[in-house]
Simulated assay, not measured.
Amino acid sequence: MNNECTIENCTKPVKARELCSMHHQRLMRHGDPLTIRPRRTKIVTNCKWINCTKSASTKGYCSKHYYIHRVTRTV
């Protein structure tokens, strides 16, 4: 029994189904051990508070203005 991944040019140790951890994870997530999907990149936007130039972090506001928005909004 070979203890290396069965994917060509991969010499990592087998985890399950004759695949290394990385290829096994890809098989479980995408149904194919050779599938490579790029990571999502975060889109940087400015705070929607008037005259604020900081980058937005939550619901379109920077951390300071999100706090103000959350605390002062009426329910």
Rank of each mutant, 00 (worst) to 15 (best):
E8S: 14
V44P: 00
K64E: 13
R26A: 15
K59E: 10
K48M: 13
R70H: 15
S57H: 09
R17W: 02
N9V: 07
C52S: 03
I7E: 07
M1L: 15
C20V: 04
L34Y: 06
T74D: 08
E18S: 11
G31K: 09
N51A: 09
V14N: 05
V75A: 13
K15W: 07
M1F: 12
K12S: 11
W49A: 14
T58N: 11
K48V: 13
P33G: 12
N3F: 09
W49C: 06
G60M: 06
P38T: 08
M28P: 03
N46C: 01
H23P: 01
L34N: 12
S21P: 00
H23R: 03
R17L: 13
C52H: 01
P13Q: 02
I68R: 14
R73T: 12
N2F: 02
V44S: 11
E8Y: 05
E8F: 05
H23G: 06
C20S: 02
T74L: 10
K59N: 09
Y66C: 08
T35N: 00
I50L: 07
A16D: 07
S21K: 12
V71C: 09
C20F: 00
V44W: 03
H30V: 01
Y66P: 05
C5P: 02
P38D: 08
T72E: 07
C62N: 08
S21W: 02
N51F: 00
N2S: 10
G60V: 08
Y66S: 10
K48I: 15
G60H: 04
P33E: 05
C20T: 03
L34I: 00
V71Y: 09
R70I: 10
T45I: 06
T41Y: 02
Y66W: 11
T35M: 07
T74K: 12
P38A: 12
Q25V: 04
